[in-house]
Amino acid sequence: MRALLLRDLRLAFRAGGGFGLGLAFFLLVAVLVPLGVGPEPATLAKIAPGILWVGALLACLLSLDRIFALDFEDGSLDLLATSPIPLEGVVAVKAFAHWLVTGLPLTLVAPVLGVLLNLPGPGYLWLVASLAAGTPALSVIGAFGAALTVGIKRGGLLLSLLVLPLYVPTLIFGAEVVKRGAAGAEVSVPLLLLAGITAGALALLPFAAAAAIRVNLR
């Protein structure tokens, strides 16, 4: 399992691995939205929680199809399926690797982008907390979508169509945490619900994703 994690990280960081593209996309969203909406600080402060969460979500979406598609094309997935590691474990490790190279960096740079969008002071802590609690769900739900579409050529668009509706609860609770945090209100209810969705997705979706991969390999 560790070997798989290290390999996926190594592949992501080497040339052509696509690491950083998600971050760059996130930055672009944070730059483009004020250009479109206008520079008024009050307006930006109001929409910052939502924009940051939608931006993080879309940035996450960008690299989802790489989770399994590359391994499917070069035959690694066949070999992993016959290896001693259970396929559920493969899914979990790959989703974790995806989170380490997208969700975690997004969480870390989000406060900087919060400055660009004039996020109110108390919101920063909750921005980081909500992304930390919610982005693992984005990765594991995305891994499920990637597992469903792994056998389909040019399945990227379909993957988005399948995954985005599944992201709705995470997005709602995540943005709600930041919104309430920025307004200085109580955040524990949405934060706990967000963490609950993440925990449930982490517990159950690797099984569904592994089942989908088995179907796609046969």
């Binding site: 592949l11 080497r14 094309e73 070069d74 690694s76 070999l79 590691i85």
Partner: peptide, 23 residues
């Protein structure tokens, strides 16, 4: 099978070392 499960950006030794570690 026809596909060798190799990663283009990894060296020969890294590719082989990965499968050794998996097994």
């Amino acid at each position: 099978a026809h596909a060798d499960g190799l990663k283009a950006v990894l060296t020969v030794e890294e590719n082989l070392g990965f499968w050794a570690a998996i097994h």
